[in-house]
Amino acid sequence: MLLAACAIFFINFTASGYANEFYSAAAQAGSVSWKAFLWVSLDSGNAITVDKPPAAIWLMALSVRIFGLNSFAILLPEALMGVATTYLLYATVRRYWGNWAGIVTGFIFMLTPVVALMFRFNNPDALPVLLMTGATHALLRSLEYANHPSGNRKRTWWMVLAGALVGFGFLTKQLQVLLVLPGFALAFLLASPTDMVRRILDSLAAILP
């Protein structure tokens, strides 16, 4: 499954060239100026910033710092995130519904046309999908622990991780990543194996990051 994911996301993935040149320019600027990197400036002189939060462009800028300015460096983070999301989705489904369910889910995901496009282009959509998938995994893991002190601590830390991933997603696509929060809140408040007070406290802990 992962070999198929690598084939889908990597084979001829530089065919788009610099893809969205607006974000590629910001990645190039961030690769030569840490100030431009921090503020995702469109140019290394920091005359103007781009119209998106910084997280997705940070990854591209770091890749360009390592590999130089080229199509491979610009699009490498996107393809890697595609493979990582496929695996994380597989691992999440496999944990609760078995290996074949996870494999089928992974293939359905990677063979969805918009997914193949999203993870082979440098618009800032790949990272939020990876982060929301990770947050979903963390939320489901938090529901596994029984209501005792050790289980409560582990549950809280998984909820904190879920909140941190959603928060980092806000640095990628702002309010778009918050679309999952109502579902997260409902699932946790209904299914958490503890009393309502503890459920609310864990939910508040997830908000803190």
Rank of each mutant, 00 (worst) to 15 (best):
Y87I: 05
F72N: 00
R94W: 04
R199I: 07
G82H: 09
L204P: 05
I11G: 03
I207A: 07
L178H: 10
N46I: 02
S44Y: 04
T49C: 04
G17P: 08
L143P: 03
V114F: 13
T112C: 12
G30I: 01
G163Q: 12
D51C: 01
S71A: 15
L117T: 13
Y96S: 15
R95G: 13
S24I: 00
A138W: 02
L130A: 12
L139G: 07
A162D: 11
L190I: 13
L59E: 01
D125K: 04
R198M: 07
V160K: 01
G167N: 12
P193L: 04
I48C: 00
A116P: 12
E144C: 06
V177F: 03
L3M: 07
M132Q: 15
N152F: 00
K52I: 01
L69V: 03
W157L: 12
A56D: 14
P193V: 03
S142E: 09
S16K: 11
P193F: 03
M196K: 04
L186P: 07
L190F: 12
I8L: 15
L59Q: 01
M132Y: 04
V177G: 02
F170M: 14
W100D: 14
F10R: 06
F72K: 00
G82L: 12
Q176I: 08
R199P: 04
I108V: 14
V180G: 12
P54Y: 05
N99S: 14
V83R: 09
A5H: 06
P54C: 03
V177Q: 04
L130N: 06
F9T: 08
I57M: 05
P53T: 12
P182V: 08
L181T: 06
V40P: 02
G102L: 09
A185Y: 06
F9R: 05
P193T: 01
P124S: 09
P53I: 08
R120C: 04
T14E: 11
N122Q: 04
S41A: 11
L2S: 09
R153K: 14
T172C: 13
N152A: 08
T86E: 11
S16Y: 10
Y23P: 05
P209T: 15
M159T: 02
M110K: 07
L69F: 09
D202S: 08
I57L: 11
Q174V: 11
I48L: 01
V32M: 07
A187Y: 10
S63D: 10
S142H: 04
